[in-house]
Write a protein that binds this DNA or RNA. Structure first.
Lengths: 333, 333
DNA sequence: CCGCTTCGTCGAACCGCTTCGATGAAAGTA
DNA sequence: TACTTTCATCGAAGCGGTTCGACGAAGCGG
């Protein structure tokens, strides 16, 4: 920096001004400084700046250590939104293990992050998040937020869309293959369907539970209630696995059983049959989370940010009216 | 830090020694310092340390801005390996766009990273990587490396496994739906199959080309050579899409056409039919990349690291002998 | 019992940048 | 032209650690 100053014939403070866009520098001088910077290939030292300003401009991101489509989509959106806002994203991932989560958190805290966004909504994770500090926090895809703000796709609305679709088709015996109950998403989705069913006076068949993987969906096929005509899965992967499992069991989808997923991962459009599901905009959720955080950090009013993103139904070919059309007309009971 | 020193009744330099594990501190003193640190909840300031040591201990990671299983798996492995080695991973992602790549690179360089690992092997990306500097670089999944070291799954071997499997089944007319030709992976896989076919004296049908997505695989179904009895896809997603496309066209897999993918993404085990593919250990590739880099950085001998990871064949149900069994016995010609 | 080595601790300089108060030059006012 | 304002630039003091040379206190052999 001193070299730059010398080459430009000014003092290093002036160079600093130019770098930070602080006014009070004559245009000709600015130009000279910029030229010197270019010539020397000078890069300001981030660490020194952080030290001097006592502002790290770093935003921590805690993501799940999975390669799933949803979280990863949000992750990329968060990363870019953060950089666009002039902050540096510090990305960390951790499996559901509390120790690993704690470790990731410590790592982030060590980098003196100014805010934190968490993508992995294990209930267990939130437990670790009790960092009472004054660290702005946004959690993605969480029903309730014990601390910090939540930005989320309206999971309940999505689940209702699915259930309603099935009801409209004439299904009356609907069973769920929910995600793991220590995930908020799974709980909210499941409850929304149950509530709707109950409100319609329909039976709530005992839900099965998977772990989000296609494998667990496959396994669920054998445990299904044989009288159920439609299955609501906690996510697309499980739905895909379930369809495979049903197929192995000789039950055809959607002719004999309808299956719906949740998420609309890219593969779902090409499964056999293509999957009816709910599409959620993972990237948008990520962007809003960052907008919220940056707003708080910069004092910019971020009040305009709606923390709830609306999902929409994507009807493909894994759903059809139940076999015995007669049952459909016996609606309401 | 001064507070800690005062509480422990020593000077800040001694605290520094304790923190860095540099010897020359009496055990009792060490204990006292540790206690003070705990009591004060003291966290050393990363920026100050970086500034003073002139070592950022940061390793940049440039990943593709996609949510695909492979790259993301490698990414998580890299992240953890980096942290385990005592470095801080700085993760960045960029789409295939050269400007975005350049931007990500600049971002990383600004953080004064000590090394770089690149996961996105677009040919175009490597062009941007000409940072002649003395920045240790490892590139994942690249056939040739113009600069830096490459760690990669042996794509050619994997492709050969697939082709051999098809040949053993009796297929003689094999067509490819390759990935985009500006991806090294795609080129290497395609060439390996072509070469093997040629070596066997079999016809090399003109290859189709997709963009890695299931959508492009679906589209390819209509453009297939009708005489081909087996299709080698550049990755699993395209294979899945292709199967869907074939199904829509009324062609059954594997009864009429065999289809194989590459990658073994989790969904592939549950497609209908379950996909025959090549499994590659993405995480291992990531780990080795980091091992290589850290070895170079720390001066530790990392010579023991084999930059080539062996893939293996996973035979499921998307492949079968060609329809006319007769052709199979006419092997060799 | 004494001089010397070794160990544990301290003082101070420095890493590269920001920032505040001060100063000189240019511009505005009477 | 003399004087006040405003603008551009400079000097210097940190930010929170690391690190090197120095120094007092034990531990050692003779």
């Amino acid at each position: 920096m001193y070299d730059v100053a010398q080459l430009a014939g000014v003092s290093h403070q002036t160079v600093s001004r130019v770098l930070n866009g602080a006014g009070g520098v004559r245009p000709t001088t600015t130009e000279r400084v910029l030229e010197a910077i270019r010539e020397l290939g000078f890069r300001p030292n981030r660490a020194a700046r952080t030290l001097a300003t006592r502002r790290s401009r770093a935003i921590g991101v805690l993501a799940p250590a999975s390669a799933e489509f949803g979280p990863m989509s949000s992750l990329h959106a968060i990363e870019h939104a953060t950089r666009d806002a002039g902050y540096r994203p510090l990305i960390t991932s951790a499996p559901a293990d509390p120790v690993a989560i704690r470790e990731s958190l410590e790592f982030l805290l060590d980098q003196s992050i100014e805010a934190l966004v968490v993508i992995a909504p294990y209930a267990s994770m939130l437990g670790e998040l009790m960092l009472g500090d004054e660290l702005p926090l946004v959690v993605l895809n969480t029903g309730e937020t014990p601390t910090g703000t939540a930005v989320t796709v309206d999971q309940a609305a999505g689940a209702r869309l699915l259930a309603r679709h099935l009801l409209d088709l004439g299904h009356r015996r609907i069973q769920q293959v929910a995600g793991p109950m220590d995930f908020f998403d799974a709980v909210v989705r499941r409850r929304a369907v149950d509530d709707l069913l109950r409100a319609e006076g329909l039976p709530v068949l005992p839900a099965l539970s998977g772990d989000w993987t296609a494998d667990s969906g496959y396994a669920a096929a054998a445990a299904l209630d044989p009288t159920a005509t439609a299955i609501v899965c906690g996510n697309d992967q499980m739905a895909l696995g379930l369809i495979h499992g049903l197929s192995d069991l000789g039950r055809r989808v959607p002719a004999e059983v309808s299956v719906v997923g949740f998420d609309d991962i890219p593969e779902s459009a090409h499964s056999l049959p293509p999957l009816t599901t709910v599409h959620q905009d993972f990237a948008e959720v990520g962007r809003r989370a960052v907008a919220l955080l940056v707003g708080r950090l910069d004092g910019t009013a971020a009040e305009g940010v709606d923390p709830s993103v609306e999902p929409w139904l994507v009807v493909r070919h894994s759903t059809a009216p139940p076999r015995s059309e007669g049952a459909a007309s016996a609606a309401g009971m």
